[in-house]
Amino acid sequence: MDKAEVTTQGSTVEEWTRALAESTGSPGGGAGTGVMLAVAASLTSMVAGYSGDDGGEPAKIRARAQQLRREALHLADEDASASKAFGAAFRLEPGDGRDEAIRRASLEAAASSAVLGDRAIGAIDDLAWLATNGNRALVADIVVAFGALRAAVAGARTNVSFDLGSLRSAGATLDQVRTQQPELWAAVEKLGGAMDRIDELTAAIDDRAAPTEAG
Rank of each mutant, 00 (worst) to 15 (best):
M1V: 08
K3S: 07
A4M: 15
V6S: 01
T8Y: 03
G10Q: 13
S11E: 05
V13D: 14
E14Q: 14
W16I: 08
L20F: 04
A21R: 13
A21D: 15
T24S: 04
G25S: 11
G34Q: 03
V35Q: 02
A40R: 00
A40H: 00
V47W: 07
Y50D: 02
Y50E: 05
S51H: 08
G52T: 11
G52S: 13
D54Y: 05
G55P: 06
E57D: 03
E57F: 02
P58Y: 07
K60R: 15
I61T: 02
A63D: 03
R64T: 10
A65D: 00
Q66M: 10
Q67S: 12
Q67M: 06
Q67P: 01
Q67K: 15
L68W: 00
E71S: 14
A72T: 08
A72H: 06
L73C: 12
H74T: 15
L75R: 05
A76I: 07
A80H: 05
S81R: 13
A82F: 11
A82Q: 08
F86I: 03
A88M: 06
E93V: 13
G95M: 09
G97M: 13
A101E: 08
A101R: 03
I102H: 01
A105H: 01
E108L: 11
A109I: 01
A109C: 12
A110H: 04
A111H: 05
S113Q: 05
A114Q: 12
V115A: 11
L116T: 04
L116M: 15
D118Q: 12
D118T: 15
G122H: 11
G122A: 13
G122W: 12
I124C: 09
D126T: 08
D126R: 05
D126P: 06
L127A: 08
W129F: 13
A131V: 04
A131P: 07
T132I: 07
G134F: 04
L138I: 03
A140S: 15
V144T: 13
A145M: 01
F146E: 01
A148V: 03
V153N: 04
A154F: 03
A156W: 00
R157K: 13
R157D: 07
N159D: 11
F162V: 14
L164K: 10
G165V: 01
L174I: 08
D175P: 09
R178N: 10
T179Q: 12
Q180L: 12
Q180E: 14
A186H: 12
A187P: 00
K190V: 06
G192M: 10
M195D: 11
I198C: 09
E200N: 02
A203F: 03
I205P: 00
D207G: 09
R208V: 01
A210S: 08
A210E: 02
T212D: 10
E213N: 11
E213H: 07
G215T: 11
G215A: 10
